[in-house]
């Protein structure tokens, strides 16, 4: 059974409102309205913080690429030039030279990995589908998971904020599977129709209990839900229909995606 998790929240607000109204003497409707305004305000703040975080990560990734990356590669180029000028160097010099070059290559590789973690370059250059294929390949290979990707052959035209939000949802879902699910196989599917983009991540693991779904400590799930809500979509997390494993489903309206691109 899948749940969006919104029903319980509304029920809590209504019960809390009634109790608080009785205590402070205001009408239940007034207190409910206050709670709802505060909930909307917090939701808006969460979205702002998530988007701000993405902007900062993107800026940092760009700076690392342009400035640190430029310096490292320029040094590597100069070392290649110098090496050509060194005729038959002393073996000790060669040893230290090669070691310095290897260290430089490791630094360049490290910089590249940091950038991809901050802001997947594939997302900006080749789009969401290419970025998801890479993410799923990498995550499942590292975790030793079997996987199936059912993704469109052609790229899907989405705006920057939509692409990164859906990418982060799949990234979080995969991270949860690796950390908690004890799964052996996953399926990631993207369905595009005229009205919606739907992303589905399913695993065959131990499933997720309802306590954890509603827990205040489930920041990962709350973060996914907030990202999808910001796109006027819906996120559901729950036990898969066959009773095994977990299914995460994000469904986002296409019209809004195009309007906000």
């Amino acid at each position: 059974m899948l749940t969006s998790g919104n029903g319980l929240g509304i029920a809590v607000i209504e019960v809390s409102s009634a109790i608080l109204a009785a205590l402070v003497g205001n009408s239940s409707e007034t207190v409910t309205g206050t709670f709802q305004r505060r909930a909307r305000s917090l939701s808006s703040l969460c979205t702002h913080l998530q988007q701000n975080s993405e902007r900062e990560k993107s800026l940092l990734a760009r700076t690392l690429h342009d400035e640190l990356g430029g310096l490292l590669v320029a040094t590597k180029m100069d070392m290649a030039w110098l090496r050509r000028k060194l005729d038959d160097p002393d073996p000790a010099i060669s040893l230290h030279w090669d070691r310095a070059v290897r260290s430089l290559e490791q630094a360049i590789d490290c910089k590249r990995r940091i950038i991809e973690n901050l802001r997947p370059t594939l997302l900006d250059n080749l789009g969401l589908v290419a970025a998801l294929r890479w993410l799923i390949d990498e995550s499942c290979r590292e975790a030793g998971l079997q996987y199936e990707q059912i993704l469109p052959e052609e790229g899907v035209e989405l705006g920057n904020s939509q692409s990164i939000a859906l990418f982060r949802v799949v990234q979080e879902a995969l991270s949860n599977i690796v950390r908690h699910a004890h799964a052996s196989r996953i399926v990631v599917e993207m369905i595009n129709d005229d009205s919606y983009v739907t992303l589905l991540v399913q695993d065959d693991g131990v499933g997720i209990d309802s306590d954890r779904l509603e827990s205040d400590e489930s920041h990962g799930i709350a973060g996914m839900r907030q990202r999808v809500l910001a796109l006027k979509g819906i996120l559901t997390v729950g036990t898969s229909v066959d009773g095994h494993g977990t299914t995460v489903l994000a469904r986002v309206p296409r019209v809004d995606l195009q309007e906000t691109s």
Partner: peptide, 11 residues
């Protein structure tokens, strides 16, 4: 380029 993932090469 510094973008060396196989996806870039293929594209």
């Amino acid at each position: 380029t510094n973008h060396v993932l196989p996806e870039y090469r293929l594209c």
